[in-house]
Simulated scan of single mutants.
Amino acid sequence: MTVLIDPPNWPGPRGLMWSHLVSDRSLDELHAFAVRLGVPTRAFDRDHYDVPETVHARAVELGAEAVSSRELLRRLVEAGLRRRKQHRPR
């Protein structure tokens, strides 16, 4: 299992800082890990889950590898799992 989590560096709802949770193997692996972590499906966005700082340590305890945001993105792209936001023509 290779689930990755970056530092909670992203400001978000409820005044919390947020992390990205991804897999560099498969979305199935990512979804299964999110269930174990107790992350709701509504937190999934294209290729990652947005998770609050309050679950970062628990994710690592469950086996997520803590990496930099740059490393997380690099490994997501290399795995072919990066899904960019679609831009709609005006």
Rank of each mutant, 00 (worst) to 15 (best):
T2D: 15
V3I: 15
V3P: 02
L4E: 10
L4S: 05
L4H: 05
I5N: 09
P7N: 12
N9W: 03
P11T: 00
G12A: 08
P13N: 15
R14S: 10
G15A: 07
L16R: 15
L16P: 01
L16Q: 14
M17T: 06
W18M: 11
S19T: 06
S19F: 04
H20V: 01
L21C: 03
V22Y: 14
V22T: 13
S23F: 00
S23D: 03
R25K: 14
R25V: 10
R25N: 12
R25A: 14
S26H: 12
L27K: 14
L27W: 15
D28S: 10
D28H: 07
D28P: 00
E29F: 03
L30S: 09
L30Y: 10
A32G: 10
F33V: 03
V35C: 06
V35E: 15
R36L: 14
V39I: 12
P40H: 08
T41M: 13
T41Q: 14
R42A: 13
A43V: 01
A43C: 13
F44I: 03
F44E: 01
D45N: 12
D45F: 09
R46C: 03
D47R: 04
D47A: 02
D47I: 01
Y49M: 03
Y49K: 04
D50M: 04
P52N: 07
P52T: 06
P52M: 09
V55F: 10
V55D: 09
H56F: 11
H56P: 00
A57I: 00
A57N: 08
R58A: 06
R58M: 06
R58W: 03
A59I: 02
V60Q: 07
V60M: 05
E61P: 00
E61V: 01
E61Q: 13
L62D: 11
L62Q: 08
G63Q: 04
G63H: 03
G63W: 02
A64P: 00
A64D: 01
E65R: 13
A66E: 10
A66I: 00
V67E: 05
S68I: 03
S69E: 10
S69A: 12
S69D: 09
R70E: 15
R70P: 06
E71Y: 06
E71G: 02
L72Q: 07
L73V: 12
L73Y: 03
L73S: 08
L73P: 00
R74M: 11
R74H: 13
V77Y: 06
E78D: 13
E78A: 11
E78S: 04
A79G: 09
A79M: 10
A79T: 08
G80F: 12
G80E: 10
G80L: 09
L81A: 11
L81R: 10
L81E: 08
R82F: 11
R83A: 13
K85M: 10
K85T: 12
K85D: 11
K85Y: 07
H87P: 01
R88D: 00
